[in-house]
Design a protein around this nucleic acid. Structure first.
Lengths: 148, 148
DNA sequence: TAAATATAATTTGATTATCAAAGTAATTGA
DNA sequence: TCAATTACTTTGATAATCAAATTATATTTA
């Protein structure tokens, strides 16, 4: 029970810290004209070659109106391209430009670096446990709060 | 190296999920007139009996102007009280009202529940490793990114 | 197959969170 | 004592977001 309070405190702090580190590092890097939420849109598109607006909005958990304006801005800044689908002309497909891909890669590298730094602190047994624990928690949250 | 990619993916997903769960649970609960960021202000004040505006702004990492408007709204909604310090009349002290304390407790309980749920998945050895690992990472981030 | 319904995206109008810079009032220190 | 500093608030601007209305297209159904 005491442990739970500890974990809670550490998690709250870790959470705030990570968000903060991400934001500050973005602001001093090559792609500082991107906000965190714009970077999250890029991150979301970047894992696929091409995505529809509605799928992207759904996984980002924003309304399609919100995504439309976000994508408008990313297009203006040269990170994203938009085209209408030929099969279903209601559908709009978005993909990263070369600049978008570079930003995606840079953000991925930052993430990897963060994780590598963190894992370097651990011995191989701890690393194994951490991975198991994180997967378990991930699965569990998806089940328990799947109404979300 | 492969592990790092796994940890990265899980963390990104876990992060998004936790933020989302927090927001959605807040919206269906008793204190649904509070936004997440308002709840974070309450959380920050709640650990102390009374805090100054500048200390609070600093730990929340927002400007004092931002905090002033946030506190204005929290006062309007009845969660926070503000008074000028007698010792130094430039200083403004804020504290939670009874309603604010109730909201704080409710949010704490939610956090505890989340952590308890997560920890239930683990045996005691795993739990121990998790706590050590989280503390190590927390300390490490504070050192590595303390420019932030 | 024409009309009704559903779907995908955008636009509109609003709110909230945020910042930087300017302003106000109180305190400190040379 | 008055210039500089500090603590906070106000102002004016911008980002991100939503819900609801709108437009265009596709699907279903009578």
């Amino acid at each position: 029970m005491n442990n739970h309070a500890t974990v809670n405190e550490i998690l709250v702090r870790l959470f705030a810290n990570i968000l903060d580190i991400e934001e500050k590092c973005l602001k001093v890097g090559e792609f500082s004209d991107l906000s965190i939420s714009e970077m999250h849109v890029i991150e979301n598109i970047g894992y696929s070659d091409e995505r529809t607006m509605s799928d992207t909005a759904k996984t980002l958990k924003v309304t399609s109106g919100t995504l439309t304006t976000a994508v408008d801005n990313l297009i203006k800044k040269g990170y994203v391209e938009r085209r209408r689908s030929a099969e279903d002309r209601r559908v709009v497909k978005i993909r990263l430009t070369e600049k978008g891909k570079a930003a995606f890669k840079s953000h991925e590298d930052f993430h990897k670096d963060l994780v590598t730094s963190a894992l370097q602190q651990l011995n191989s047994h701890e690393e194994e446990v951490l991975i198991k624990v994180l997967s378990d928690i991930d699965v569990f949250f998806n089940e328990k709060y799947n109404f979300v």
